[in-house]
């Protein structure tokens, strides 16, 4: 298969970027999207042109390292991450636009690589259950209803890739925050810190320059881990409860 690529090239965070044209030639239809870019990079290197920089690591859809907006869609066509997009999804001769995830809170690094460390900062604000190593009670001493455990797992499946932010017109990180708040808040172990967690994580999100949620649901539509936007309602409830609690205690 052959493709025309329009790829965002940007030398570093301070230089302006622009789209450049490349030909992707003789690509096997069984190749993944990132393998297609590998092939293009091999030919660029052979011509002494700087290869296209992009993030990836596990290439099995779980680490959340790969990004890319393909033809305007974060992680490209179909469900799952960019590394799980296969070229058989495209038609021979297609023109494909490739851009980085764009958001005020994700600053550019180079070409298609952006800095998503803001997500770590949000977790630092409260995305955990504090438990000193060695102090845990016997695991089966605390039954968790299967329904809650399953729902917590659904929220916990978030891979932290940032596609929800890239897809949101407001660049909001609400789905990411909601997934963590719901995962921990659905479990009995997470109750002690439930309210402070919600309020601290949301505040950190605001401070880092993510926008607010306007219920566009673009995040849910794009999420490779299929995190449901109903978790945002759960977050809103915890946040409201925590805010009321805070107002009363002041």
């Amino acid at each position: 298969m052959n493709f025309k690529l329009k790829v965002w090239r940007q030398k570093n965070a301070v230089s302006p970027g622009s789209f450049k044209d490349y030909d992707a030639k003789d690509i096997p239809s069984e190749a993944s999207f990132l393998e297609m870019l590998d092939i293009v990079n091999e030919s660029l290197t052979g011509n002494s042109e700087d290869p296209i920089e992009f993030d990836s690591d596990c290439r099995e859809g779980i680490c959340g390292m790969c990004s890319l907006v393909i033809n305007g869609i974060p992680h490209g066509p179909g469900k799952g991450t960019t590394c799980q997009v296969y070229m058989r999804r495209f038609t021979d001769g297609d023109t494909i636009w490739i851009e980085p995830f764009r958001a005020a809170a994700f600053s550019p690094i180079k070409d298609l690589v952006v800095d998503r460390s803001a997500f770590d900062r949000i977790i630092q604000a409260g995305g955990y259950i504090v438990v000193r190593t060695g102090s845990a009670p016997e695991a089966n001493s605390l039954p968790v209803p299967k329904h809650n455990a399953d729902l917590a797992m659904e929220a916990a499946a978030c891979i932290g890739c940032g596609a929800c932010v890239a897809a949101c017109p407001n660049s909001s990180a609400m789905l990411f925050v909601a997934a963590k708040v719901s995962h921990l808040g659905l479990l009995p172990q997470g109750q002690a810190e439930r309210e402070t967690r919600a309020i601290h994580m949301v505040r950190e999100m605001d401070e880092l320059g993510f926008g607010n949620c306007r219920n566009y649901y673009e995040c849910e539509a794009i999420c490779p881990a299929e995190i449901s936007a109903t978790f945002i309602a759960r977050l809103n409830r915890d946040y409201a409860a925590a805010s009321a609690q805070e107002a009363l205690t002041v």
């Binding site: 955990y128 259950i129 438990v131 190593t133 060695g134 102090s135 845990a136 009670p137 016997e138 695991a139 605390l142 455990a149 399953d150 917590a152 797992m153 916990a156 995962h183 921990l184 479990l187 172990q189 997470g190």
Partner: peptide, 9 residues
């Protein structure tokens, strides 16, 4: 025990 206490589902 440790992982369950941390909320590993």
């Amino acid at each position: 025990d440790q992982c369950v206490a941390q909320g590993v589902p």
